[in-house]
Design a protein around this nucleic acid. Structure first.
Lengths: 286, 286
DNA sequence: CGAAAAATGGAATAAAAATTCCACATGATG
DNA sequence: CATCATGTGGAATTTTTATTCCATTTTTCG
């Protein structure tokens, strides 16, 4: 993987290289190689001095070790160790750099697309691994149990809402998309009652309309399901259930893929719950 | 866990503390708290200067932040972040195991979400590998060269358009989202002229409004860029450039992830082209 | 509205770290 | 066994990084 000059940039390759080359290394360097393979965490987090002591060598030996592998210095080698723990979240600055360089080449659109795809995939996988199943079930039940679903989200969150509006409508749920046309957002939301559900979607920086309408609704006893990106979201107060969605971003552009998938899954899960319940109560009616 | 004096030594406690105390913190410190909770990985590996920049504060603020929580300095706080990875990730295999078990266990919403994620990832990767770079460049240049961008898409395609509207606006392009409020879609599109660009997004079954408006515009000499899902799309006739987007679907639900990524990439690519051109012509004006 | 307190930004300083350098040791080779 | 190439330890140096300090701004409260 990704070594142009025999100097690994990813941990697995580096590890393999160390194991392969260790027998031919000078004593101290071999010692360092062994230590690096055995206790990668210590290498990841330690300072040169600390690692040197643990490995029983001089600090300078570590630097020479790194250089003998083709790195500029020990720090560069340590970066590979760190990337191992960090990989799933592509490095912000480096990415931006790549973005800029590529578009300067005017290789442009397609390469950029590749980056966006990477970011979206990262986002999706990460979200799948971190989201709490219990929360999702709660949310799905909330949707399934509601009389009508009110969807609230502005700016970047709006596509999510309009997508849910489409999906829910297709699944047969009474749905109101609060699009705030003519500034009537608050009024659109006013029809919602305790039997209904307001799904509020908002990301930093939180649109005040969204927050205000959600709070007002909550105050009236309308249950609120919040999809948001941080535990500090102002939606936390009013929401009955909160699902935290952390998306990866590329430059200034945050992916929406994870949120959309989540939204879709919730809608379909809710539809399933409803269907199951309908079957239990009156199988004949279907 | 293990805090004698209210200063957490483990990450989870620290995180909880930050969430709890953030509302009462001064602005900048709250900002740091949010950053620390949202992007712990960046805090774990960054230097004070790098983290400060990403969080939009001064280095000294980070130190003060740590001290206000009872740590001696920022480094001590960072240790807590590092310990989190040390403790949590030593064994990759175990982690995978947990993950596997979790997704096998869970039924309902979460499992469904996993499926949607799989579908989206498949969609993304496939799209990245099949799309024609030349087309994308054409499309990006078209967007970059236009006076104003008109966005047309109904139903499932609407979220894509609203997302583009958001992105283009943020990138400084004059943008009109044809949302067809009050049935005024055709009239909204009428302002578009040969200097402008109409981006039409439509998937099977093609909404007639979209097709009609796109055709009418094309007849008037407005260039049309079509994002669609089949070579038989009725948009083929009127479009100057067509990008074909094939999305994977799960049951009746087709993913949108690929289309959204594509849309985003096009917008950013166009913005880059514009910037490059602006720099060439009048570097002084920037 | 005005004084006091708290918070903030940014430069200055101190601390710590990485890296380089070189004298010395070791081991291979003729 | 002399010589040379290679490897090593440790101090010196340079660079990076964290922290402190203080003038200025913002907020709070009488």
């Amino acid at each position: 993987m990704s070594e142009t000059d025999g100097t690994p940039r990813d941990f697995d390759t580096l590890r393999a290289l160390l194991i392969e080359r260790r027998p031919d290394m000078p004593k101290r360097l071999a010692q360092v190689a062994a230590f690096a393979v055995d206790r990668p965490d210590d290498v990841t987090f330690g300072t040169v001095a600390a690692i040197a002591e643990q490995a029983g060598v001089q600090p300078s030996t570590l630097v020479r070790f790194a250089q003998s592998l083709g790195y500029q210095g020990f720090s560069e080698l340590q970066d590979v160790f760190r990337a191992r723990l960090r990989d799933r979240w592509p490095d912000y600055d480096e990415r931006l750099e790549v973005l800029r360089r590529r578009s300067a080449d005017s290789q442009g659109a397609h390469a950029l697309f590749g980056d966006f795809v990477d970011t979206a995939v990262t986002s999706l996988i990460r979200l799948r691994d971190t989201i709490e199943p219990a929360r999702m079930d709660e949310a799905a039940r909330l949707i399934a149990g509601a009389r009508a679903i009110y969807l609230l989200g502005q700016r970047r969150a709006f596509p999510v809402c309009s997508y849910m509006a489409y999906a829910l409508a297709k699944l047969g749920s009474p749905t109101v998309l609060i699009d705030n046309v003519a500034g009537l957002g608050p009024e659109q939301a006013e029809a919602a009652g305790p039997e209904d559900l307001l799904i509020a979607v908002s990301f930093t920086p939180y649109t005040s309309l969204t927050v205000d309408v959600a709070n007002a609704a909550a105050a009236r006893g309308v249950p609120v399901l919040a999809l948001t990106d941080s535990p500090f979201s102002p939606l936390m107060e009013s929401a009955k259930v909160v699902i935290e969605v952390i998306e990866a971003d590329l430059g200034a552009f945050r992916s929406l893929s994870g949120t959309l998938c989540l939204a879709m899954a919730l809608c379909v899960a809710a539809a399933e719950i409803r269907r199951a319940e309908a079957e239990e109560k009156g199988p004949a009616r279907a």
